[in-house]
Amino acid sequence: MATMTENQIHGLSESFTREEYNSQEIFNDEMQKIYGTNWCFAGLCESLNKIGDRLVVDIGSESILILRNRDGELRAFYNVCQHRGSNLCDASGSGFGAAITCPYHSWSYSLEGALVATPLHEKDSIDRETLHLKSVQVDQWQGCIFVSLDPNTKPLLEWLDEHYSRPRELEKFEMSSLVNAGTTVDEVSANWKVLAENYSECLHCAVVHPELVDLVPVYKTGKTIQDDRKDWGVSLADGKTSLSHKQNESLALLPSMEDLDEYSVFGAFVYPNMLVDISPTVAVLTRYVPRSPTHTTIFTDYLFPKSVVDDKSLDLEPTISFSDMVNQQDIAVCERVQRGVASRSFIRAYHTKMERYCHQLILRYRSEIN
């Protein structure tokens, strides 16, 4: 197990170095040792409701194709034709039918990855059984699809149980019963670790998120959890009912939220690329896709009870735009950090004792990258 080194500066521990924020070589190593070995959040199960629906995602340095077979089971493959190496699919979507056909020479594969057609060749002239698509591990949790490129990785639920952020304690909110009302996509000029560190602490909240701390008073203190609660939740301010530009909107609460004594907020960073944010009326799921040492794509989904999404008289914009406002505030400060950590004057970052979840991030990272 990696250990945290205490810097000579009293009260501070060492975080990432300038090279770890900027080096292409280190980034490539991360894509292999971190994104190439862990379970990674890849998308929502609801995007694969029908046979022929496809999800094309980048996991580490690989393009992955995810779909459902005829029995409704998830399957995932490297997005590579076994003939000449062409990518099979360019984008996610629906209506592709029950075959995967390469756009180069029209070789076709079944939804199980078996090679079933090789135009202009006699059927027995090619040993099709040896040319099936290369599969990767895929599973689902709470309506979310996860992929692992490591064939020897632990089962997904066992892997989730080991997370310091305790994501499985959020299962009571039944995210799989919710419906996505929209997705925002942001291209961010920052390293994925800058984003992860930012999410893992709230010392910046009073300065960067004035609207948020007005709704969640404990965030003004720099804390991410509330000392008088044992469920890892934090309470909204008196009279506040949601994280939204409008209060008392008559939106249905998420499952189990009514069982709590107070309107509450919960969150978890599911290392290495997922954020889960639960508030009274919406679950916000965020997915990081690292593109380079200084570029990350962020996908954000906004999940509500199905009854809310189906009721066109309800206005979801105040809730979605509030979350997006907080995202944009975080993006701006993370891009500011990325510009700073590129300076020749910058050696490494530091964490205070209040940034304990940043410490956990560093420990996990060091144990895998070294």
Results as ranks from 00 to 15, higher is better:
Met1Asp: 15
Thr5Glu: 12
Thr5Gly: 08
Gln8Ile: 13
Ile9Val: 11
Gly11Arg: 01
Ser15Lys: 06
Thr17Asn: 02
Glu19Leu: 10
Glu20Thr: 12
Asn22Tyr: 07
Ser23Ala: 12
Glu25His: 11
Glu25Lys: 08
Asn28Arg: 14
Ile34Met: 02
Tyr35His: 10
Trp39Ile: 02
Gly43Ala: 04
Gly52Ala: 09
Leu55Lys: 04
Leu55Val: 00
Ile59Pro: 04
Gly60Lys: 05
Glu62Tyr: 07
Ser63Phe: 03
Leu67Val: 04
Gly72Ala: 00
His83Trp: 01
Asn87Leu: 11
Leu88Gln: 04
Ala91Glu: 15
Ser92Ile: 07
Ser94His: 09
Phe96Asp: 10
Ala99Leu: 14
Ile100Pro: 03
Tyr104Phe: 13
Tyr104Ser: 05
Ser106Cys: 13
Trp107His: 09
Glu112His: 09
Ala117Gln: 15
Thr118Glu: 00
Leu120Ile: 13
Leu120Gly: 02
Ser125Ala: 10
Lys134Ile: 08
Val136Ala: 07
Val136Pro: 01
Leu149Met: 07
Pro151Gly: 01
Lys154Thr: 10
Pro155Asp: 10
Leu156Asp: 05
Leu157Arg: 10
Leu157Asn: 08
Leu157Lys: 13
Asp161Glu: 13
His163Lys: 08
His163Met: 06
Ser165Gly: 06
Ser165Lys: 05
Glu169Asn: 06
Glu169Thr: 08
Leu170Ala: 03
Leu170Lys: 02
Lys172Ile: 14
Ser189Gly: 00
Lys193Ser: 06
Lys193Gly: 00
Leu195Ser: 01
Tyr199Glu: 15
Ser200Leu: 12
Glu201Ser: 02
Cys205Asp: 05
Val208Glu: 06
Pro210Arg: 04
Val213Ile: 11
Asp214Gly: 14
Pro217Leu: 08
Tyr219Arg: 04
Lys220Thr: 02
Gly222Asn: 06
Ile225Leu: 15
Asp227Gln: 14
Asp228Tyr: 00
Asp228Cys: 07
Trp232Met: 10
Leu236Asn: 09
Asp238Thr: 11
Gly239Met: 03
Lys240Gly: 13
Thr241Val: 06
Leu243Arg: 06
Ser244Cys: 03
Ser250Asn: 14
Ser256Leu: 04
Met257Trp: 05
Glu258Leu: 09
Gly267Met: 09
Leu275Met: 07
Pro280Ser: 10
Thr281Gly: 04
Ala283Leu: 09
Arg287Leu: 06
Tyr288Trp: 03
Tyr288Lys: 00
Pro290Val: 00
Ser292Arg: 01
Ser292Met: 00
Thr296His: 04
Ile298His: 06
Phe299Pro: 01
Tyr302Cys: 07
Asp311Pro: 01
Ser313Phe: 01
Ser313Tyr: 07
Glu317Gly: 01
Thr319Gly: 07
Thr319Ser: 14
Ser321Cys: 07
Ser323Asn: 09
Asp324Ser: 06
Asp324His: 06
Val326Glu: 01
Asn327Cys: 05
Gln328Glu: 09
Val341Tyr: 11
Phe346Leu: 10
Ile347Asn: 14
His351Phe: 01
Cys358Gln: 04
His359Pro: 04
Gln360His: 05
Leu363Lys: 15
Arg364Glu: 05
Arg364Asn: 08
Tyr365Asn: 10
Arg366Pro: 12
Ser367Met: 13
Glu368Thr: 15
Asn370Leu: 06
